[in-house]
Amino acid sequence: MNSLTIDQLRLIYTGKISNWKEVGGLDNPIILLSRESSSGTFVFFQEHVLNKEDFSNSARLLAGTSALVQAVAADRGAIAYVGLGFAAEAKGTIKTLGVQAAGQTGPVLPSEESVRSGAYAVSRPLFFYTNGAPNDTAKKFIDFCLSPAGQKIVRETGYVPVS
């Protein structure tokens, strides 16, 4: 198992596929793991991967990304979605699957290039929200984040810089 299509991901997370052999893997039950419903990632995944369908009720909802990474590393047949930075940090203990979106000819692994180009389908931008135009401290902070020094930190923590 090195990749899944978006359709397969949707069928897995909505509970219509429950064994790895149905998607070309070993004969093992799929242990579904997800963030809690209070998480923005949960809603993103629901909207863009599950195509707004409901998660299977047998999905185990864990309290944070580290808990997910730890569970995937420990439990046979477990699958979860986590931020690129967490996946990179846990390299070796967990396996990152490529994703093939509709219209693509092959699976795409997540990387800085594939996320930036949009080829890797399960990615999203992160925003800062301010009340009106940002002033003083807020502006300084946002400017710093967008500066080369700030973007360097973004890359170091495993996220994808905007510039």
Binding site: E36, S38, S39, S58, L61
Partner: peptide, 28 residues
């Protein structure tokens, strides 16, 4: 595991009332 399943199996995941409040109240 906090999966909200109606079950009597001890080896299944369950979501308790307390865990639901704790997990969801923060962002509701």
């Amino acid at each position: 595991g906090n999966a909200a399943i109606l079950t009597a199996s001890p080896l299944s995941s369950v979501r308790t009332m307390t865990a639901t409040i704790a997990a969801e109240m923060g962002e509701v």
